[in-house]
Design a binder for these strands. Structure first.
Length: 435
RNA sequence: GGAGAGAUGGCUGAGUGGUUUAAGGCACACGCCUGGAAAGCGUGCGUAGGUAACACUACCGGGGGUUCGAAUCCCCCUCUCUCCGCCA
C-alpha cells in the first residue's frame, strides 16, 4: 500500500510513477482523493459532535454526583438526539474510508527511480552474464527426453494422478530434487546468514493481501475447504510461494530496531493456478501447478533496502555458480515488474536442451509497500515507528533448476554428471540409465 | 466435538457504568547522585487521526446492542489456555 500522505501531497508525482507501469493505475488517483476528502470532511464534523457529547456526559456525571438529578435529566434530554447524528455521520465516514481503501489496495507499488522505464519483457536490460553457453560435441537433449530415459520423472502417471501440470519424481529424480533442496537450504543458512523457517502451506486471505497477491489477483490461487463444510472455516489458500507465509510472520507487530535485519530462508512447495497460461510452455517441467522452491525473505531498515537487495541477488547467483550453470541477471523494466515490487532483478539460467534462458529467481525490494499492508513496523531509536523494507527472492525455484542441471551436465552417453558441490547430498557423481 | 477460564499499551498487570485524559511495575530516554557503574531519586514515555502548535477524536481480541455516557452491562464471532473425547 502506498502512503496516503504521499498521494495527498504529491498526486502528480504518484501519477507519473504509476504511469510508468503502463497499467493505467494513475487514473485511480483522482477518485481516490475524492473519497479521501469526503472521509476527512465527515470525520471533522463527527469529531466535533463527539467532543460535545463527551463534555456534556461528563457534566451529567458531575451533576449526578451532586444529587442534582433534575438538572442532569435536563442535560440528558438536550443530548439525546446527538447519538443518532453521530451514528449516521460515522457511517458516512466509514463508507468513504472503505471506498478509499478499496482503491488503495489495488494500487501497485511505485517503481524505484533506478528502474529502467519500459513496457514489456523486451525492454528488460541485461545487468550481467556469468559463464558462457556450454558447447556439446553432440546435439543436447531436452529435459523431458533425459528424464524419461533416466526415469527421473514419470510425466504420464503424474497426469493420471492430478491432471496436467504436475510432476511425479521417481527414484534418482526424487533423490536429486531432495538433494537440491538440502543443498540450497544449507548454503543460505550456513554461508549467507539466513534463519531456516518451515511455514504452513495453507494460509488465510490476510496473508495474501499482506504481500499484495489479493485482492487483485485472486483467481491465480488454489483455495481449499475442509470436507463439505467449507463455509464454516475462513477459507484457506495453498501458498503460491513461501513469501506469502514468511513475509507475514511479523504482521501487526512492532519490532525493536535491534531485531533488524531479519533474514529468513524457507523451503516449501508452491501452488499456482497459472490461469490463462494454458498451452504456454506447458510441456515438461517449465511451467507447472506445483513446484518446490527455496525462498529468501528479509526485513530491513529502509536505508539498507537496496544494499540488501544486491546481496540477495548475489546469494541466489551463488547457487548457480556452485552448480556450474551459465546464467544472466536482468532488471525488470517498469512495465514488467510485479504488483508489490519497487525494483526487481530476475536470474535466468541457460537450458541447452531448450535453447533458452529460464527464470529461476526473482529478487525484489517491495520497500514499505507490504509492511504498510500488514501493519509491520519497528521502533526506531531516533525517528519513532517506521515501516521497514521487505525483500523477497527465490534462492532458487527447483523444477527449472532441475531442468538446467540435467540439460547442462548431460553426457554423450545419456548420463548426467553431478557437480561436485551437490555430490555430498546426492551421494553419487553421476546418474546413468542402468544405475 | 463437549465443559470451564481467559484476551487490557513494547512486556507485565489493576480496573465490574461517570475526575480513567487506562493505575502500578518492567523496559526505554534524559537528568540528579557517583571517581565510574549499579542501586536510589526525579522527569518523560501507548497507537493512529488531527493542528503551525495546542485543542480535539478514536482505539482495552473482532463485530453489533443498551445508555446522556461502556475497558466495565447484553448478544454474536475469533483466538488462547486447562480438562475430556477423537486422532498421525
Amino acid at each position: 500500500m502506498l502512503d496516503i500522505k504521499l498521494i495527498r501531497e504529491n498526486p502528480d508525482f504518484v501519477r507519473e510513477r504509476l504511469a510508468l507501469r503502463g497499467a493505467g493505475d494513475e487514473g485511480h488517483i483522482t477518485p481516490l482523493l475524492q473519497f479521501d476528502e469526503a472521509r476527512r470532511t465527515a470525520l471533522a464534523e463527527v469529531e466535533t459532535l463527539k467532543a460535545t457529547r463527551n463534555r456534556v456526559s461528563k457534566e451529567i456525571g458531575a451533576l449526578m454526583g451532586q444529587k442534582k438529578l433534575a438538572e442532569a435529566e435536563a442535560k440528558k434530554q438536550e443530548t439525546r438526539d446527538l447519538g443518532d447524528k453521530i451514528a449516521s455521520l460515522d457511517k458516512v465516514a466509514a463508507q468513504a474510508e472503505a471506498d478509499r481503501d478499496q482503491l488503495m489496495l489495488r494500487l501497485p507499488n511505485l517503481p524505484h527511480a533506478s528502474v529502467v522505464p519500459g513496457k514489456t519483457a523486451e525492454d528488460n536490460p541485461e545487468i550481467r552474464v556469468h559463464g558462457a553457453k556450454p558447447e556439446f560435441a553432440f546435439k543436447p537433449k531436452g529435459h523431458v527426453e533425459l528424464c524419461e530415459a533416466l526415469k527421473l520423472v514419470d510425466f504420464a502417471r503424474a497426469t493420471k494422478l492430478s491432471g496436467s501440470g504436475f510432476l511425479l519424481y521417481t527414484n534418482w529424480g526424487a533423490r536429486l530434487e531432495r538433494a537440491l533442496i538440502q543443498f540450497l537450504l544449507d548454503l543460505h543458512i550456513t554461508e549467507h546468514g539466513y534463519t531456516e523457517i518451515a511455514p504452513p502451506l495453507m494460509v488465510g486471505p490476510q496473508c495474501l493481501e499482506g504481500v499484495g497477491q489479493f485482492p487483485k489477483f485472486k483467481d491465480q490461487y488454489y483455495g481449499v475447504a475442509e470436507g463439505d463444510d467449507a463455509g464454516k472455516l475462513g477459507k484457506l489458500y495453498l501458498i503460491p510461494t513461501a513469501e506469502t507465509p514468511v513475509a507475514n510472520i511479523h504482521r501487526d507487530e512492532l519490532l525493536k530496531e535491534a531485531d533488524l535485519p531479519v533474514r529468513y530462508c524457507a523451503y516449501t512447495p508452491c501452488f499456482r493456478g497459472e490461469a490463462g497460461a494454458a498451452g504456454v510452455g506447458t510441456r515438461g517441467m517449465i511451467r507447472v501447478h506445483q513446484f518446490d522452491k527455496v525462498e529468501l525473505i528479509k526485513i530491513v531498515r529502509p536505508e539498507q533496502g537496496y544494499d540488501e537487495l544486491e546481496k540477495m541477488v548475489g546469494n541466489a547467483e551463488r547457487v548457480l555458480q556452485l552448480l556450474g550453470l551459465h546464467y544472466r541477471v536482468i532488471m525488470l523494466c517498469t512495465g514488467d515488474m510485479g504488483f508489490g515490487s519497487a525494483k526487481t532483478y530476475d536470474i535466468e539460467v541457460w537450458a541447452p536442451g531448450q535453447g533458452s534462458y529460464l527464470e529461476v529467481s526473482s529478487c525484489s525490494n517491495c520497500e514499505d509497500f507490504q509492511a504498510r499492508r500488514m501493519n509491520l513496523r519497528f521502533k526506531s531509536e531516533t525517528a519513532g515507528n517506521i515501516f521497514p523494507h521487505i525483500l523477497n527472492g527465490s534462492g532458487t525455484a527447483l523444477a527449472r533448476l532441475f531442468v538446467a542441471l540435467v540439460e547442462t551436465h548431460q553426457q554423450a552417453d545419456g548420463s548426467v554428471v553431478i557437480p561436485s558441490a551437490l555430490q555430498p547430498y546426492l551421494k553419487t557423481d553421476r546418474i546413468a540409465a542402468a544405475s
